[in-house]
Amino acid sequence: PLDTDKYFIVSSDTLCNLNPKLPKVVTTGPASVNPATGKPYGMSFPVVTIQDFVNLQYKLLQSLGVKKLKAVTGASMGGLQTFQWIVSYPDFVEKAIPVIATPRTQAWLLGWGKLWADPIKLDPKWNNGDYYGKAEPVDGVIYSLMLTTMSAQGFEWAEKSFERKWASAEKDPLKAMENDFLVHDALQKAGAARAKTADANSILYLNKACALFDIANGFPSYEDAVKAIKAKVLMIAASNDLLFPPEQVKEHAEIFKKLGKDVSYLELKSPNGHLGGLTAITQASEAITKFLAQ
């Protein structure tokens, strides 16, 4: 829904990209080599925040000579960064389109974050983050990514994709404990595939950054943070998002409105849960085009 013939789009990575093994990923994070030791930082890497990510992006734009942004947008963690942008640099951004995100991480998502992190920490090979050059905590990473995959989808997706089918037509789950259903097999394969390029510590650092996120950080209150915002805001939610439920997104939109902010709300209809914010984003094309043109 973004017209690249009309707008110059800048897209940047963050610190601690979870896939540092990919050749095109040049992020700095716990898997990066500490020049002082010649070894990966591991858990000695400092805790980073969404605000750190945004501050680096601001410095990038300064280096490019950019004086003002027509809009900032992003989905999920990108949505958190979008909210942070309009609080940290209110005079630099005209409009914001946070997708499947809220202005602070709430208890529900904090709980999910623990479920995503603990499989890694419970894998003995994690070794308190000291596994570089050794056997890595692959099992923990796979299970973490399986949980991430499942929680980011919706029940309609599961029913449509797998129903109660067996993983193998010859292996009835009733006949042996190791015989699985198709959904079990699919989650395992998806987790294993993603784990090939993922770094366990990087997952934990991103998880922590998201957990710490709250636009109220550095302000007396959440309301004071909202009052500092000058940008027009279009909040976009997904209908059956388990991670950022539309009810929560709508609640924040109402708070923004009560505090005098120019805010609008749009809900995408999708069977894909949280990922519906990506798979169904074209539903918002007209609204986004009009919003940017205002």
Rank of each mutant, 00 (worst) to 15 (best):
N127A: 08
A135F: 11
W157T: 00
K175S: 10
G133K: 06
M150H: 00
A117G: 05
K95D: 08
P173N: 06
A192N: 02
G191C: 04
S202L: 06
A193F: 10
K121W: 07
S144T: 02
G154C: 08
A158S: 06
V138C: 01
Q81L: 08
I97Y: 04
F92A: 02
Y89T: 00
D118K: 12
G113P: 02
K171V: 04
W112A: 08
D185H: 14
R194W: 12
Y131Q: 04
P119A: 01
Y132S: 00
E94G: 05
V183P: 14
I142F: 02
P173K: 13
K165A: 12
V99E: 13
Q153S: 09
L174I: 04
A167S: 14
A211C: 11
D199N: 09
Q81I: 05
L122I: 13
I120N: 12
T102S: 15
V138H: 08
Q106M: 08
E163S: 15
F181G: 02
G191M: 07
K196N: 13
E94W: 00
T149L: 05
E170Y: 10
H184Y: 12
I86G: 00
T197Q: 05
S151H: 11
G140A: 05
L122S: 13
L206N: 14
K171P: 11
Q81R: 01
I86R: 02
L206W: 04
A169D: 15
S161R: 15
G154Q: 03
V138G: 00
K125A: 14
N179R: 14
V99P: 15
P124I: 03
S88W: 06
R104E: 13
K175D: 09
F92E: 07
R164W: 10
Y89R: 00
G113K: 08
A186F: 14
A195H: 03
G129E: 05
F181E: 08
G154V: 04
L206I: 05
L174P: 05
K175G: 04
A96N: 09
R194K: 11
M177T: 12
I203R: 08
A198H: 01
G154D: 07
K189W: 02
C210Q: 11
Y131I: 00
A152H: 11
Y205D: 11
M146T: 01
D130N: 12
E170C: 10
R164P: 14
W112M: 09
L122K: 13
D185I: 06
T197A: 08
T105W: 03
L212C: 00
Q84A: 12
L109S: 05
A135T: 03
L122T: 13
